[in-house]
Design a protein around this nucleic acid. Structure first.
Lengths: 130, 130
DNA sequence: ACTATGATGCGAACGACTCTCAGGAAGGCG
DNA sequence: CGCCTTCCTGAGAGTCGTTCGCATCATAGT
């Protein structure tokens, strides 16, 4: 057996289905506690990490260095355009940017190149709201 | 007066001139101590932060969430291609990728878009070395 | 030189995250 | 259905990078 089906993992996946923004393990833990769950913080950290490893959730690091998680619609590789104000997230395909990255890397003799590409801006709604 | 010229800041800039790879505040502190400096860790953190704010050094976050700093040749905006093995760093211009980012953001109604674009790979030397 | 004010260095504090370990519960087996 | 192995859980302690508080120091304008 590889990954055991537990109440806690189910609770986390349920919660992530209800949330559209990237959330930290701490936020998820607090939200679950508020919902009446007795889940522990360490468990949230462990679950969210293993979910990220298997690709069931996406993770990235905020500018402050905190890891945040989100259940994305796209299961395949993609990137994000996040609103710095409300957290609204758009999943984007970065084919062009990745092609460019590959070229640049090859031009300098680099192999096995990983890329980090994330976009943060202010969405139309938040701009209108001031 | 805005930024005072101190022995410690000078030591840090001198050190950064001698180093080509991105280094953490802790590493810089240890290197300075080894060189005989009596500089404090907090001072290194403070100096390196303000230098990053004024653009005198570049900073980025490692996958582990640690902040690392480097004095780059290019003073203008640029990105990095870093060797995951030896830390060798190439400064790259990401005009294409940035244009793409601007388009994608505009297409989704986002404004004031910041981008994070970093490339990590294995350089030719390290690949040859196995 | 004199002084105002930013900078320093130390240790304590902080926050995100991980580890330890005893108890609990999946899930395969008979 | 009950048993047993093994993995998972929860609480608290610990780790690690970073920041804060504060007394002292030193830079740079007068």
């Amino acid at each position: 057996m590889v990954v055991r089906q537990t109440r806690q993992r189910a609770e986390i996946l349920d919660l992530l289905d209800d949330v559209d923004e990237f959330r930290s393990a701490q936020q998820l833990h607090e939200m679950l506690r508020t919902r009446g769950s007795s889940i522990g913080l360490a468990t949230v950290y462990r679950a969210v990490q293993s979910l990220a490893e298997t690709g069931e959730v996406d993770s990235l690091r905020t500018a402050e260095g905190e890891s945040v998680y989100r259940r994305c619609a796209q299961r395949s590789h993609h990137h994000h355009l996040v609103c710095r104000s409300c957290g609204r997230t758009v999943e984007i395909d970065a084919g062009q940017a990745e092609a460019w990255a590959g070229q640049v890397a090859a031009a300098h003799g680099f192999d096995d190149v990983d890329h980090t590409i994330e976009l943060v801006g202010t969405c139309a709604t938040c701009r209108a709201a001031g």
